[in-house]
Design a protein around this nucleic acid. Structure first.
Lengths: 205, 205
DNA sequence: CATTGGATGTGTCATCTTTCACAAAGTGAA
DNA sequence: TTCACTTTGTGAAAGATGACACATCCAATG
């Protein structure tokens, strides 16, 4: 396994994992790069090459055992364990994120929710008590939380990110429609549905 | 302007546009590829080359007039107009999407919301009346709606997509955690925050 | 007016990514 | 066993994307 694997390869692994989970839920036990590729709209060669970065998971003539490949991918992605996640922002967007069950179902447990509005502190969103942003640094570092989600207005997102980073967060999922500047050692991913829509309208006549 | 511009270039234009809107909101009137690149973590050469696909928007020695570049990008992306969008699914996720103000603010107006649950029909989510999925085909084709968002359980997403496509939808934003198979003439973008988280955990020690 | 400084647009080159194509290996049937 | 068929893993080729570097142009200043 080479020391550095292209990020674009890494970005496809969760897609493969998701498809495998679906197949296994449907009771299927074995699949092939060709079948997977057909489901995902990806060439079979690409799937094989991507997987080959991490070792030979398949068997010639047979394909891949779904349960085994799933386990291997989970380990590669480090999602065979559970992760604690902090959420900053309990407005419309933040509340929706807090209530979304899909995170915990797939191993990402929101354990703290922060907001800056004094009138929200102590109230609940879903099953979480809202805490003041002043406590971010202490709580995150004490609990060694490495992943955070930002769902605050764009104006405040950079400042929140700075606080999170200095508290020890290493991965940020940013729902605010703004680019964040963080050290190279911190990973950021963005969710902005409007960007996706704008990308598609280009192709509409 | 070449007849076919790489999709990866198109995918960056909304990011540029978002940054320009931010700068102009802050009162700035002129920027440069260098400054933009610094904000976005992209090389200045790449920004210049991307923009050059569509003509010379800047002036040597000066840079880009923000208002003008914004207008041009909006036209290129076809977001200088408003778009009608249909939403399918009024569960937890769909309701949150329906209530999110960011779509209308940026020109994407949800005009119809559909759900399959009989007990939800006629009720409201935000300012929308929930309609039965049986009416999708008729309403979408009568109103020439070209863009739809899917926020139904993964099990039903493909079927919903098929219906939308046959009704004339040409662009789909899919919140369901599953890949959709659609004709080449239809564009699909995916929103699955867990995929982004899983991509980042790979890099966490 | 001439000169200096700064920023674009772009040809060229380097790097990254995907596809191709095939040897090697496993399966199942006769 | 042998044969026909399937599918992986992987070098090598092709293709796509990004970085470099500079000629060209514009603005501002003395």
């Amino acid at each position: 396994m080479p020391s550095t694997i292209p990020d674009i390869v890494i970005s496809r692994l969760p897609v493969y994992l998701r498809a495998l989970e679906r197949l296994s839920q449907e009771g299927q036990e074995v699949t092939s790069s060709h079948e997977l590729g057909k489901h995902l709209g990806i060439s079979s060669a690409q799937i094989r090459k991507d997987l080959s970065h991490f070792g030979g998971f398949g068997k010639q003539g047979t394909g891949y055992k779904i349960a085994y490949l799933k386990d291997q991918l989970r380990q590669v992605l480090k999602v065979e364990r559970d992760w604690q996640v902090a959420l900053v922002g309990a407005g419309d967007l933040g509340s929706a994120v807090a209530r979304y069950r899909g995170f915990a179902e797939r191993g990402f447990h929101i354990t703290y929710v922060f907001d800056s509005a004094p009138e929200k502190i102590g109230k609940r969103v879903g099953s979480f008590v809202i805490r003041p942003v002043d406590e971010i640094t202490q709580i995150i570092s004490e609990n060694s939380i490495k992943i955070a989600m930002i769902a605050v207005p764009a104006e405040n997102a950079q400042q929140v990110a700075d606080t999170l980073v200095s508290a020890g967060v290493r991965a940020i999922l940013n729902y605010a429609p703004i680019n964040l500047n963080v050290p190279d050692s911190v990973h950021v991913q963005y969710i902005d549905p409007v960007l996706h829509l704008q990308r598609m309208t280009y192709y509409l006549t």
